[in-house]
């Protein structure tokens, strides 16, 4: 399976993502610069954390119009797996690939610590290696992770089982404690916590590795024919 991690000016978790795939998952990954215009040859696209374009105007607002995004959106619309973590999630929201928006954390502090999450949906191409209700520890590192959506959108997210991860405790003021959501088709996941920083016990937790294993499993089941 061949992954692409998109590198925007100001991305700073692209290396973590790279090593999560190369060393953790032992699959192929390329760093793809934001000026590229075709990502169709990859099996999955990863948007990393960081501060793309210095978070100017709004987090992700300017990255959303980077040249590479046209192709990312095209591939997402075709059903290719797209994972956005932290700033990557913010870019997906700004690109309207996912509903809602991010605001400053409710207490205005940047939070950087391991966080307990609940797996709310284990039937996605990103979470099939988890079990529903499972508690996992994955670090967060954000100042604007306060997920907001209106009541009608929240009802739709709940009805379509689009809420994938929630925080066990309210850490940032997010609507319904939402930590991660998928789009209606289920091929685009955005989440604030960093699974790529939890891929080995040496790092404090290996709970994030299962997310990438889920992507691999889903891809094999979808595209690789066994003789």
């Amino acid at each position: 399976m061949k992954f692409a991690v998109i590198v925007f000016p100001g991305s700073n978790c692209d290396n973590d993502m790279y090593y999560a795939i190369e060393e953790g998952l032992e699959e192929e990954i390329d760093k793809v610069w934001y000026t590229e215009t075709d990502v169709s040859k990859y099996d999955a696209i990863l948007l990393p954390g960081g501060f793309s374009y210095g978070d100017y105007l709004r987090s992700g607002a300017i990255a959303r119009f980077a040249p590479v995004m046209e192709s990312v959106i095209e591939e997402a619309d075709k059903g290719k797996p797209v994972l956005g973590v932290c700033n990557g999630f913010q870019v997906l929201l700004e690109a309207r690939l996912l509903p809602g928006a991010m605001q400053r954390n409710k207490d205005l502090k940047f939070i950087c610590r391991p966080t307990e999450l609940i797996v709310e949906n284990d039937q996605t191409g990103f979470t099939n290696a988890y079990e529903i209700g499972e508690s996992v520890t994955i670090p967060v590192a954000h100042g604007e992770g306060n997920y907001y959506c209106d009541e009608q959108t929240l009802k739709e997210l709940q009805r379509n089982k689009q809420i994938v991860f929630t925080y066990r405790n309210d850490i940032n003021g997010s609507t319904a404690n939402i930590a991660g959501i998928v789009n209606e088709q289920g091929n685009v996941l955005g989440m604030m916590p960093h699974p790529e920083r939890a891929t080995s016990d040496l790092l404090g937790s290996a709970d994030g590795l299962k997310l990438f294993k889920s992507m691999l499993k889903h891809w094999r089941e979808s595209y690789v024919l066994t003789p």
């Binding site: 105007l57 607002a61 119009f65 907001y148």
Partner: peptide, 8 residues
């Protein structure tokens, strides 16, 4: 498109 986010 850019200057505001109509969601919020």
């Amino acid at each position: 498109k850019l200057l505001s986010n109509p969601v919020i």
